[in-house]
């Protein structure tokens, strides 16, 4: 088995440093395997959040060679030769080593009103056709790894957490806004409270999404266009106000 060096951030919110660990690596190993080996052989107190090890729980998000990725889905042989740098997510407060406090995201989720379904059909059922739910089904693939939140420069670099809800929750808003049964009017909040205008659609969220959700093209831009319908399109405004059409 070959040896490989990992440069891992160790520390907490007060400070810390990069520490180099060299361990044996084998074929098929992912970054999370290497971290577990470091925990077993060098530093049992190295903090790292993980759970399913199958790319479905979204727990093991971290930055590997500077890119936000799931450590359980990043094979070592997919990384270039040399030292592998591993850091915690940048957009959220650091707890310890590779663990960040992502609870801000859960607070954002609470701000979003749940589905407000229209009345049931006469037989007591709700009915949706497949073509109506295709779009929102894509959004349900989200595993809430928050890699998109981490890479979004509005949150990551500009720290606009109080202005912009972030790509993950624009996806959730799109999922509800486009839902064929939802009756809630969310457009005003999408613009004013959740900050659709803060996104400058540079697509990093889409690039890092492990579920390959078209975050920018299928969620954020369609929401921006709906905001344009309501607030910026003078013809749509005229039709709505003067002719009384929605």
């Amino acid at each position: 088995m070959a040896q490989r060096t990992f440069k891992i951030w160790r520390g907490d919110s007060e400070g810390g440093e990069f520490v180099d660990y060299t361990v044996e690596v084998g074929p098929g190993m992912v970054v999370l395997d290497a971290i577990h080996r470091i925990q077993a052989e060098h530093s049992s107190e190295l903090a790292c959040r993980w759970n399913c090890k199958a790319g479905k729980c979204g727990s093991c998000s971290m930055e590997i060679n500077g890119k936000p990725r799931l450590s359980c889905m990043t094979r070592l042989n997919s990384l270039p030769e040399g030292t592998v740098t591993i850091q915690p997510l940048k957009a959220f407060p650091l707890v310890k080593d590779l663990v960040t406090d992502v609870s801000w995201n859960f607070e954002q989720n609470k701000r979003i009103a749940p589905l407000k379904p229209k009345a049931r059909d006469a037989d007591g059922n709700h009915r949706m056709m497949q073509e109506d739910v295709d779009r929102v089904q894509e959004f349900r693939k989200c595993i809430e790894c928050f890699l998109c939140q981490d890479v979004c420069h509005v949150l990551r670099d500009h720290k606009k957490h109080e202005k912009f809800v972030g790509p993950r929750f624009m996806v959730r808003l799109a999922q509800l806004e486009m839902h064929p049964l939802d009756t809630d009017d969310r457009i005003e909040k999408i613009r004013k409270e959740f900050g659709s205008g803060w996104c400058n659609i540079t697509r990093c969220c889409t690039e890092v999404c492990p579920e390959h959700i078209g975050i920018t093209d299928n969620a954020i831009i369609p929401l921006k266009e709906r905001v344009v319908d309501r607030y910026y399109d003078p013809v749509a405004w005229f039709i709505r106000k003067v002719l009384g059409r929605k």
């Binding site: 400070g15 990069f18 930055e63 500077g66 890119k67 040399g82 740098t85 850091q87 997510l89 940048k90």
Partner: peptide
């Protein structure tokens, strides 16, 4: 390794990254 001051090893200066 040498210890940067930035929390998590992240720096905010223009162009700062650990991308390789």
């Amino acid at each position: 390794a040498t210890a940067p001051r930035a929390i998590g090893g992240h720096k905010d200066s223009f162009g700062a990254t650990t991308r390789s």
